[in-house]
Design a protein around this nucleic acid. Structure first.
Length: 473
DNA sequence: CTATGGCACGGATT
DNA sequence: AATCCGTGCCATAG
């Protein structure tokens, strides 16, 4: 499969731009939350940057509402489609980077076409029938106090005090809300939201109690992927800790609002929680086989070089001229680097989308193991670039699942799912040694010891214990 | 004696 | 250079 891009932004192609490269690299390693901080800092200290609220067509500058296409020039907003075989760009020209130095190279904010009703109303509608009339106002209060992540700002105690009601009354309502559709909405924290979701999965969870404990006690460790430490905290082996951590990250969503509410994001919302929102979204086109890759633009508005500042430079007082010029350069550099970051990520994701198309649409079993090195080769960039781009980022798949980008590089996921299905269909409890043989017939050569590991990762009990379970059913 | 889990080593990956 | 992953060896449980 020859995947080649129309243009190329690799190292060495722009020798004059070492500063660009350095900054692009560092930006590439950031996910959207970190990016927000970075941009906020830059906005604060650099007067040449400005953030315009609202949305603008990057091409014709027309102010937009919620259209995916700009109605004036039909520019497709921040999206590029990926066809099955050759890659198709819906907007073939991403406005050459660097071609226009200080003006116009704006980035665009990303908004899904969220014509859905507001989250609060949606949830309220689900539960209103179960609410006593005096509970309605409490529910409304909770729902209007949730932030865009679906997490409650403030505490239930406050609300109880506000209405002079016992805390337990509020808790009843809160519980109803949490169990409504975006599971876990209105929880007081990401941890609690996770617990609600965990509970709803019930016995589908491989290690329920351990997972619960991990969420309660090991949030910080969990989000940093420090499996070893997590293992120590819970008194279990590293592998098991890892399995649990991965299960939580892959199947639970710390931001219940996100899966429902699209991606609105504004300045100044700092998320205390450490688990992530997606940095990239892959969706499928309506009536179309194409997958659309979108990179999140985490700010609400349009970041650009302030044209007023630019004009001011011309008539700048002597002593300030130099300083302002530097500000201006840095501002446009930052914007260009951001654009390049986005572009790199989009290209990366496009290739992944092609290679892992089946995985994205069908599920774990169709994962195709691929290494970062191979991908780097395809992209024509250095390995470390891919590493940085992948690090700490997550993708929202068409199914709504949010997975870490690194999962696309899992070397054994497809074998593990194969293993799972083998065991699900078994009539007699198969020992690990037998499983090795069966897997080999299917083309997966792995050692007996490894089967045991995979089993453990998936939370499947050893053969002799499964025997008892099989007997029941 | 067989099936598994723990530990640790070495090669691959990042 | 640091980390991850598959595997082999050994101890232990059944």
């Amino acid at each position: 499969m020859a995947i080649r891009q129309g243009f190329y932004q690799g190292p060495g192609q722009r020798p004059q731009a070492t500063a660009h490269l350095a900054q692009t690299m560092s930006l590439l390693g950031l996910n959207s939350q970190e990016l927000i901080q970075k941009i906020e800092a830059a906005l604060a200290e650099n007067p040449a940057l400005e953030l315009i609220e609202g949305r603008y067509c990057p091409k014709c500058k027309r102010k937009l509402r919620n259209e995916a296409h700009c109605p004036v020039c039909s520019f497709q907003q921040a999206k590029e489609a990926v066809n099955e075989e050759p890659i198709v760009f819906l907007n073939s020209a991403e406005e050459g980077f660097g071609s226009r130095a200080t003006s116009g190279s704006e980035l665009r904010e990303e908004i899904p076409t969220a014509d859905k009703e507001p989250l609060a109303a949606y949830v309220l509608r689900q539960i209103s029938s179960e609410l006593a009339s005096d509970e309605q106002e409490i529910a409304a209060h909770i729902l209007t106090s949730i932030n865009e992540d679906g997490i409650l700002d403030g505490s239930l105690e406050e609300i109880a005090r506000f209405y002079h009601r016992p805390l337990s009354d509020v808790e009843v309502v809160s519980e109803l809300i949490q169990n409504a559709d975006p599971l876990g909405v209105g929880s007081e924290s990401s941890e609690k939201a996770l617990l609600v979701q965990l509970k709803s999965l019930g016995d589908k969870v491989p290690h329920y109690d351990l997972s619960k404990q991990a969420i309660l006690e090991g949030m910080e460790v969990l989000s940093k992927h420090q499996y070893g430490e997590l293992g120590q905290m819970l008194n279990i082996s590293r592998d098991q800790a890892k399995a649990i951590a991965e299960f939580i990250i892959e199947n639970l969503n710390p931001f219940p609002g996100r899966s429902y509410w699209g991606t609105k994001r504004s300045l100044g919302t700092d998320t205390p929680s450490t688990l992530q929102k997606p940095d990239i979204i892959v969706r499928r086109q309506k009536n179309d086989k194409r997958l659309v890759v979108e990179v999140m633009w985490p700010l609400f508005g349009l970041l650009r070089v302030n044209p007023l500042f630019q004009d001011a430079l011309k008539s700048a007082p002597e002593e300030k001229a130099e300083e302002w010029k530097i500000d201006l350069e840095q501002a446009s550099l930052l914007i260009k680097c951001l654009a390049q970051r986005n572009h790199t990520i989009v290209r990366l994701m496009q290739i992944i989308s092609v290679v892992q198309r089946n995985f994205i649409l069908e599920g774990d079993a169709h994962m195709k193991p691929i290494t970062r090195a191979k991908l780097a080769e395809e992209l024509g960039v250095h390995e470390s670039t891919v590493s940085r781009a992948v690090a700490g980022k997550s993708v929202q798949l068409p199914s709504g699942k949010i997975v870490m980008l690194s999962q696309f590089f899992d070397r054994s996921l497809h074998i593990r799912t194969e293993l799972k299905s083998l065991i699900e269909e078994e009539s007699k409890a198969l020992s690990d040694t037998k499983l090795v043989k069966l897997l080999e017939e299917k083309g997966h050569k792995i050692a007996r010891r490894t089967v045991a590991k995979y089993r453990n990762m998936e939370g499947i009990l050893p053969a002799h214990m499964r025997k008892a379970q099989l007997a029941k059913t």
